[in-house]
Design a protein around this nucleic acid. Sequence first.
DNA 1: TAGTAGTGACTAACATTTGCCCACAAATG
Length: 575
Amino acid sequence: MNNREVAHTFVTIADMLAIRGDNIHRVLAYRRAAEAIQDLGQDINQVSAAGKLTDIPGIGQTLADKINEMLTTGHLAFYDKLAQEIPPSLVELLRVDGIGPKRARQLYDTLGVTNLDELAQAARAGKLRELPKMGAKSEAKLIKAIAELEKHGDERTPLGTAWPLAHEMLTALASISGVTKTAVAGSARRMRETVHDIDLLIAADDAAPVMDAFVNLPQVESVSGQGPTKASVTLVNGLQVDLRVLPADRWGTLLLYFTGSKAHNVHLRELALKQGFSLNEYGFTPTDGRAEILCATEEEAYQTLGLPYILPTLREDRGEIEAALANNLPDVIRIEQIISDLHMHTTWSDGKLSVLDMARAAQEHGRQYIAITDHSASLGIAHGLTVERLRQQAEEIHQANERLGPDFRILHGTEVEIKADGTLDYPDEVLAELDFVIAALHVSLKQPREQMTQRILNAIHNPHVDMIAHPTGRLIGERPPADLDMEAILQAAAQTGTILELNANPHRLDLKDIYVRRAMELGVKIAINTDAHNADQFDLLHFGVGTAQRGWATAVNVVNTWPLAQLLAWLREKS
DNA sequence: TAGTAGTGACTAACATTTGCCCACAAATG
């Protein structure tokens, strides 16, 4: 079993326990453990083999035993026992908007509903309205919610899809008279790779006109809730959008609350209580009856708790509050520190612009040097370069450098294919002619773990290979990551000085945040590149920087912050 | 259930809005 499967079992157990009505702390313990396993950045099997499971925060002896049982037998007796009381399929009901553990229990006890299909049947048969604390309205609402779930599912949306949509809506609302501040909050602001919904915030003294405009936006399909300060809508593509409106003098605590994460908020509010405040989105209320403290900025809110400002991308309750308390927050990478881009394509392969045009676009986007890294021959679909064309390209790059002058530099690179048999698409003597060599996987991504891993390890151990691009090959929401022993790859990268890419394209974000964090622990250098195929794709950089921040990456470990001479020196030193 | 203190017991996750039925469940971060 892998991390995802173990975590999923624990989440299901948590749901079953919640439906059964168990002690909330017991439920939370399973949820916390599931989260910790998902965020681990290491293979749970390896951690288990090393006997280090209880080192994971939130995992004690009881859960460690359960994990070991799952990993060795593939089963969990506790799960099977629980399943006799609460059918695991009952957990499906919780996916329906409007059904929580209590309702699920009630539906099971009174109507014998055990899964989503049976719930839909019971609802359509008009059986729900007869239940206590239910009525015709609740029934109709659930029927609609079930239909919505069947139509759009409840998959999370890639950040790259949600981001432009969120800003489009926000721009429309920003022009309403009386609006003084606007923000995209929630997981999009934290730059999670996928979002469950879009959270918008607006500062205005009078909320009503904003609410009104919001629910009437052209993207809106239906309104699921509308009160004086809060409204929720569903868009035509199924995505939910929440809006909160408050006066500007409460902006700091409002933004803090709505940005989350939930776990970060809970932790902050506990901290506030210990310091004699109740903290909510409206402000700090001293528990001894003194006057309320309003914060117009997030900085003021953190300051009130005696904390330095914590970037949104760090707010996951993965140790950032403890670090802030110790005045030991990581000095994470900022976008203005990035001066290079080491992965991009031109018309030589599947890019849209010439070498010179890409260089000029990069320069306009603030980069001081770049690597042109077109595909190699075997990637026919991308018009990969033969050795002969690669050498012709060298000449063009030389000429472009002459035209651009001393303030900018183009490195000649390649994105050489790691072929299905684990060999590289160019011979070593050709790679030796290049300034910067990226190796990457694009084909045969479904090989078994050992074979996949070995292909990357081969590339890492080739002295000519400087970087591995988008290591897992995943496309968020479309293609799963290749099955890789990431720990072995990270260790090998650390040992050889091979750079691992954090591909900034929001549909890749590969390395993902948890592996970035593991890379930092191991001293692996990363590169945040756009993989641009056109000029406007240089703008994708901020997604990569956000993901790097989520992995607590610092500038010294991000090679794109290095002056060219430093990068070249590093590459020369590399074994 | 984890964590802590101490080997069996105790504590521990905050604060709000909305809808719908008539007090509460579910939802939001």
